[in-house]
Design a protein around this nucleic acid. Structure first.
Lengths: 112, 112
DNA sequence: CCGAATCCAATTAGATACTG
DNA sequence: CAGTATCTAATTGGATTCGG
């Protein structure tokens, strides 16, 4: 074995996390919801070029893993609002660190 | 526009970060290297079921984005060691938060 | 030991049309 | 508005073979 028992636990935890939140869309959806509740087409606009299928797929996945919440309001036409669950809000520190890293090390240097 | 100017900047930073570190393999490779230098086949063993192609692909990608460093030692047979760059080490806080989340909210509950 | 190169399978993403 | 269903395109991943 090349890594210690403790290191192995670290890898396991990361793998666990990646089972739930994986791929760029998941992260971006969670980022958007961390800024406030969003409706379906509202997210489509804010995420720019995501397809209907990709968005529905990732929303289903995140909802099944209880990271986001789907609430239907019986207006006409119907309104559906997505929000973060406790589990989802607990992910915000990850997003925060990721944002910091992107700001400091991303391709586009910050304009002075 | 549905999100504020400030929120838009947040999304942009996240997108920037995702251009460099994306997919489960990148994260796992960085996690492994955050624990110490690693050689090619050593990483293959520690990452369990990653294929040669997937590993070389992700290592190239991360090296091109200056997140990891590749150093060749002229032994026989040759030894190649991968380490984190400054940019890569700056990513460790993201990994740390991700690990914490995985520990607390992953599928396998912590054994009491 | 460290890969490059090739081929093929599987997963993911987009476009489009249609529904309540 | 908020999707479902379907089809196709593109990306990614694995298996294998070969070379320095």
């Amino acid at each position: 074995m090349d890594v210690s028992k403790e290191d192995e636990l670290c890898l396991i935890s990361i793998r666990e996390a990646l089972k739930v939140v994986r791929g760029k869309w998941s992260i971006l959806v969670l980022t958007l919801l961390s800024l406030g509740p969003q409706r379906f087409n509202q997210m489509r606009r804010n995420l720019d070029h995501i397809s209907i299928k990709s968005l529905t797929d990732v929303l289903h996945h995140l909802e099944q893993h209880e990271v986001i919440n789907r609430q239907v309001f019986p207006t006409r036409p119907v309104t559906v609002e997505y929000t973060l669950t406790d589990k989802g809000r607990a992910y915000i520190p990850v997003l925060r660190e990721l944002r910091i890293w992107g700001e400091n090390w991303g391709e586009h240097p910050k304009l002075g």
